[in-house]
């Protein structure tokens, strides 16, 4: 597969990174990451948004994926809006990411075989703590995908 002109424009700030390039971006698009929402929801949601924005192609969600979005989720996370309240996490996330990055598939289909796992156990109570912890984990997963899976 090659990157389309639209993908080259969308991911241009990744592609020019020395450790990523077109090959690394293609690895991100081909990657399947399992994201566990049973602990540290706010930080995990932050990580999911940044992974999806980076073009990680398939995100398998597990845990409380059918939990309805609440006011508290909006106050402590970055991915929901008022009109998501009462909608399940997975529906709201799919709607958000479809509106910003159609390259990404969000699913709860656990029969797929993930290449990487996102499991955050430390709880956070504020957006700023969720940003830091979720950002660290998203960066770790992205780095692993573009470097560790490098072919010899």
């Amino acid at each position: 597969m090659t990157l389309s002109p639209t993908q080259i424009e969308r991911y241009s700030r990744h592609i020019i990174l020395p450790n990523v390039g077109g090959v690394g971006q293609q690895r991100l698009l081909n990657a399947i990451v399992h994201c566990d929402l049973s602990t540290s929801k706010s930080a995990t949601l932050v990580a999911i948004v940044y992974l999806a924005s980076a073009g990680v192609g398939t995100l398998i969600l597990s845990g409380d994926v059918h939990h309805p979005v609440t006011h508290h989720d909006i106050e402590t996370s970055i991915c929901f809006e008022l009109n998501d309240i009462g909608t399940s996490y997975i529906t709201a996330l799919t709607t958000k990411m479809t509106a910003s990055n159609p390259d990404v598939t969000i699913t709860s289909n656990e029969s797929l075989h993930p290449h990487h796992r996102l499991i955050i156990t430390d709880e956070t109570h504020t957006i700023q703590d969720a940003l830091i912890l979720g950002g660290q984990h998203a960066l770790s997963v992205i780095t692993s995908i573009v470097t560790v899976t490098q072919q010899p």
């Binding site: 700030r13 990744h14 592609i15 020019i16 990174l17 990523v20 932050v46 990580a47 940044y50 992974l51 924005s53 980076a54 957006i127 700023q128 703590d129 969720a130 940003l131 830091i132 912890l133 979720g134 950002g135 660290q136 998203a138 960066l139 992205i142």
Partner: peptide, 24 residues
């Protein structure tokens, strides 16, 4: 800058989180 040197988006989350902590 980001246009010429590139950026991983998740880095921005970390910087923003620290910035909000320090702003408070």
């Amino acid at each position: 800058n980001c246009n010429t040197g590139g950026i991983v988006g998740a880095v921005l989350a970390i910087v923003a989180g620290i910035a909000v902590q320090q702003a408070q």
